[in-house]
Design a binder for these strands. Structure first.
Lengths: 342, 342
DNA sequence: TTGTAGGCGTTATCAA
DNA sequence: TTGATAACGCCTACAA
């Protein structure tokens, strides 16, 4: 016998309407009816079919999460944050890796839309995505994670990349390393643009001219970063400090430095964006910009829940939450201004 | 106007049955009918409501993935593998972090069951889980990931932990470190048990007595591992080699070693289970057991797809796929038997 | 407070 | 080849 509402109702000797009301915990039902329904449901082992339910209610208690790559330090912990608050609120998470690829991203958007997610958290790969904007206009609650292009009207939860990289570069300059190179991510990417901007700002603040030769792109790729450093080292006037825009590129950079027996920080200071677990393990320990990635996830999901429950559909709320990264000073830039070892 | 099948049919001047057939691409439909339906659908911007569909077909094209923690090296890349093949096959992934907690794990199982996933990939936290076994008996296609308790009847995709740790420990012994300590994960956990077994096997193979004092549990926790090493160092007869059962604990162990100025590998050899990106960065570079985690994900998902499409429901196929980890020899155990640097 | 009955948007059967 | 029509399992006016 199938476990349907009708069977529960029959067994309890009431109508499906009554049964539905007590099981759904709303509307009228006498004590007696309630008792009988509950008992019958229990006996049968009834579980409401949420597919059938959402056909009517238009709620799926599911949120879509599209990020570029779960394998990336920042995202794994952001996703963990999202999942944690989603769970607390009885939502379920559909995970999608777009690989920073607009086509893939759009395909995923189509999928999650088709699956009728109640809301969406997305780390967009480009300044604009027509399909995404269409969804937003259509009333889908959306929160932008980590990247908040101006033209997309949605709630945004991002970290202050400019501040982070500016502080990082400034730190090196203050310690006397005035010729600082940068290994940035992917040209054109929002986060990369911002990190570059912070880099430039720090130089300007210190009246140092910007030298285009000192700006390279490692594409968030270890090997590419390694090569970039090799190129730096081959210059006639190489940098004596390095700002590297994410974890894996920092690994690549350090590898290249080691291979060439460059002494850190004497010959080359270095600070990485992202503060990985291994930062204290290198010699010298790595000074790094720590992103509050878990918090980003938590907050993004909370914001989404709020939008969804405000009957979000209809009004587009646009809010920007900017989290501050933190420069964790260790030893890779020299001891002078270092506080305590972490 | 709502975009329903009925509207498409009306516009095309056919019945919903015909429209459904051409849109669903099955059954009879004349060329003319097909053309008209397609055109009407296009015009209206019709998209089939997969909720309504799955109410009938009992397919959701969704698979549940429950792991202990996405934040963990092994799982982030396994999940990436799962997601990649799921996507290729038009399936979507629901992600759940159980934190190695049976209650949480079971709650998630209830959720994904309620959501009517077509299949499940799970990294079980215990030797048995009644609810899970009930689901399996009920015909849900299930693949066990990373841990394959005997009593659970399902397809299993695991890595050979015994082999991995045995090789690791054996490697150190061969290099002359005969007093080897182990920092294992959580006592009772399957993977931990196996890694311990491999450790013991290596000792036995080399006729070395097992000293209980040399076995500690770091609970997959950096701080705990660090303390364990401190304790080792305080022993009157401390180990001169260390086998550490996962990435974060290896960080903790190395930290403790550094703090105490223990020279690696002269005073203490070390090999870690898991070969993280930073392994080449420490001095000396870390010798480590590399798990084929991405492959584990790929294969697990492929196996699941197979089960699902074989009308898996009904027959319980039980197969065990064991992947070999690889000992990557670098410098943390001494140079003698090291091949090439990686 | 209860029950009847009409959806929700598809798929699937079966007679025509 | 086609099209009524009955499911699928639940929610929810609305009448009683």
């Amino acid at each position: 016998m199938r476990k349907t509402l009708k069977n529960v109702a029959d067994k309890a000797g009431v109508s499906t309407a009554v049964a539905s009301r007590v099981l759904g915990n709303y509307g009228y039902a006498s004590k007696e009816a309630r008792r009988r329904v509950l008992r019958a449901a229990e006996k049968i082992g009834y579980q409401t079919d949420i597919i059938a339910r959402s056909l009517i209610t238009h709620k799926t208690y599911t949120i879509g999460v599209v990020i570029s790559d779960i394998t990336t330090l920042f995202f794994t912990s952001a996703v963990r944050g999202i999942e944690d608050v989603a769970r607390e609120n009885d939502y379920t998470v559909i995970l999608c890796n777009s690989d920073e690829n607009l086509r893939k991203e759009t395909e995923y958007l189509e999928v999650v839309y088709e699956k009728k997610v109640d809301g969406l958290i997305i780390s967009v790969s480009a300044e604009n995505n027509n399909y995404l904007e269409k969804l937003i206009r259509g009333g889908l609650p959306v929160v932008l994670l980590d990247r908040g292009p101006k033209r997309i009207k949605a709630t945004k939860v991002v970290v202050d990349n400019i501040l982070g990289s500016c502080e990082a570069v400034n730190h090196m300059i203050k310690l006397g390393h005035r010729r600082v190179g940068v290994i940035n991510g992917i040209d054109g990417t929002m986060t990369s643009n911002e990190r570059l901007e912070g880099y430039k700002k720090a130089l300007q603040d210190n009246d140092i001219a910007i030298d285009p030769e000192l700006i390279k792109y490692g594409e968030f790729n270890m090997e590419k970063a390694r090569e970039s450093v090799q190129e730096f080292l081959r210059m006639e006037n190489p940098p004596n400090a390095l700002f590297v825009a994410n974890e894996v590129m920092t690994v690549g950079a350090l590898l290249a430095l080691n291979e060439n027996n460059i002494r850190i920080p004497e010959e080359m200071a270095i600070v990485g964006f992202d503060d990985p677990i291994w930062a204290r393990l290198t010699r010298p320990a790595l000074t790094a910009v720590r992103q509050p990635s878990y918090s980003v996830g938590i907050i993004a999901c909370q914001a989404l829940l709020q939008k969804m429950n405000k009957g979000g559909r209809g009004k587009i709320s646009e809010e920007e939450i900017i989290l501050r990264p933190k420069l964790v000073i260790r030893e890779s830039c020299g001891e002078k201004s270092s506080r305590r070892r972490v």
